[in-house]
Each structure stands twice: as C-alpha cells, then as structure tokens.
Write a protein that binds this DNA or RNA. Structure first.
Length: 294
DNA sequence: TCCCAGGGAGGAT
DNA sequence: ATCCTCCATGGG
C-alpha cells in the first residue's frame, strides 16, 4: 500500500497511478508507479520515460523507491509489537493496515516543505510548493513531450527577496525563513547531509537554530528527510490525541508529548505518530465497517 | 466577521 | 519552564 504523509510536495496523481521525477547521474527520469495486488501481497509496476533508460537507471530507481516508499519497513512486526488491546495505538491498525512512512527524495526540498507547514493547511502548502517549482525550479522536458519543474535549488531561493517570494507563491511570513535557510545552506553554515550522521538529539539541537524551524518542523525533517524513525513530530493533532489517550486528557506540553512517544515507541515512534495522526483527524474506527483504502 | 490550518519567535509571567 | 500574541494567506 502506498502511503500518504511526507515532507515533499504531493505527487501527480491520476487514478491509482502516481508520477514523479527522479534525478540520476545528471539525467532526469520521469516514472509512473501503479500498485497491484492485495494490501499484504502487492507488486508495484513502474514505467519510465527518459532520454536514456539504461539498466543502471532501472536499478537506481528500484533502490530509490525502496527507500522512498519504506518498502523495507517491517510493518507486520510493528502491528505485532503493539497488538495488545490495552495499547491505544492498536485500535488504529485495522483501518490503516499497510500504511507506510515515506521518505523525501531530497533533503533541501524536505526542509523547505516542512517550514511551509507551520500554521498552514496541507492544501495551501502544496499549492505554494507547486508555485515555488514553477517560478524558481529548473524545467526539464521529456521525450513524450511532457515537462516538469524540479524543486528549486538552495542557490535559486537564496537569490530571492522575501517580498518577491511572498507575492509569487503566497507563502506569507514564512518567506523570510525560506530565504534565510536557503542562504545558510548556500554558505555551508548548515550541512543537511551531515546531520544524518548525528544522533537524534544532536541533530535536533542544530536544526532549532535555523530560522522558522522549531520542534515540530525539526522532527518532520528528521523523520521524513533524514529517516530518523524515532522522531515523532507533534502538531496540534498529535498533541491532542496523545494527551487524550495516554494522559487522561490532561494537557501536557508539546515537547513532553514528543519525548513520551520516543520513549514509549523507540524506533517505531515515527510510525506511531503517523497512525495516531490519522486516528486523531478521522476519529475512532466506526462499527459500520469502513473497508478499502486506495 | 471570526476561526482554523500538521507552528515559530519574542516577550512577559 | 510555561504562557501570551502576532505573524500572511486562503478557506469554511
């Protein structure tokens, strides 16, 4: 099953097929994936469009998708570990079985997209991301006649003034943070790739020094960007549901909620957050059997 | 008109 | 440490 919830712009979707562009050895590969089979036994068909679809590109794409779609995650083990009915998390499993955590394809893109999420709606942040790509991203064309705008590079955004960014993408006051972070990345004042080597706590501390990056955005980047699965972003929904399910409704602080999730679920904290998020937004599973997700 | 959207920064308690 | 208020923008 393909998952939702990630830290990059929504993929182009047509029915049950998803399309994205991946860069490999300087060439751009447009691919479309389509899942067939059941939730537990499935295969993912992939078709590619590129200037040269070499075998190496196919292998690259295969491992890329394994990471991005979290196909190696042993979700069955997750369900078994927390199957006890006394564990509130277990009640989310029936409806979400098969849902996996996605990884972002690009660190900078993941961080910027996470910054856009602050006090914003999913719909709006996706719209802003599209505008960012169209106005500031490199356009690549494909043999089939289609074209695609890549996510802008740090250099492209570092050159912008916050005002202009705001008027073109309607990202509001977040523009100042986006420009600030882009410039820091360009000057090597922050090395996103090196954070992958750091411990969770160390990387978390470094990220908090970036403009527009607080605990929630930092955790989003740690989880979806760097793949640190003990990270559990605490937004309003997670804050509510954790207080309700695990603290008898008593309001704990957001930081305490994040700490709690990490200590209780360890390396499954990111997954616990993903499942609890859906549970918090859609409410408890109704008895009127809801079947089939797409 | 008011309130909310996968919050963060700065200041006041 | 925890609690305020403001911050752009779009949708209900």
């Amino acid at each position: 099953m393909l998952s939702a919830q990630t830290a990059e712009p929504e993929w182009l979707r047509q029915g049950l097929s998803f399309t994205d562009v991946e860069t490999f050895n300087g060439t751009h590969i447009k691919y479309t994936l389509h899942q067939v089979g059941s939730i537990d036994e499935f295969t993912i068909n992939v078709s590619m469009t590129g200037s040269t679809v070499a075998e190496k590109a196919v292998n690259h794409l295969r491992s890329h998708l394994n990471v991005v779609l979290g196909l190696k995650d042993k979700v069955q083990s997750f369900y078994e570990t927390y199957a006890d009915p006394s564990e509130p998390l277990s009640s989310t499993f029936s409806r979400l079985r098969g849902l996996r955590l996605m990884r972002a394809t690009n660190l900078f893109e993941s961080l910027i997209f996470s910054i856009l999420s602050q006090n914003n709606s999913v719909r709006q942040m996706n719209r802003t991301a599209r505008l960012l790509m169209q106005h500031y991203g490199t356009r690549v064309a494909f043999p089939d006649g289609s074209s695609h705008h890549l996510f802008p590079t740090p250099e492209a955004l570092a050159k912008c003034e916050a005002r202009q960014l705001r008027s073109k993408t309607s990202m509001g006051y977040r523009a100042k943070s986006v420009v600030g972070v882009s410039r820091m990345v360009c000057r090597n004042e922050i090395r996103l790739d090196e954070l992958a080597m750091c411990s969770y706590d160390e990387a978390f501390g470094v990220l908090l020094d970036l403009p527009g990056v607080g605990p929630k955005v930092a955790d989003c980047f740690l989880l979806y960007g760097l793949g640190k699965r003990e990270a559990a972003p605490v937004d309003v929904w997670i804050h509510r549901i954790v207080s309700k399910l695990y603290f008898k409704g008593k309001k704990i602080t957001r930081l305490a909620a994040g700490r709690f999730l990490r200590e209780r679920f360890g390396n499954w904290a990111g997954y616990a957050q993903l499942y609890l998020f859906d549970y918090a937004r859609r409410g408890p599973v109704s008895s009127k059997a809801k079947a089939g997700r797409s």
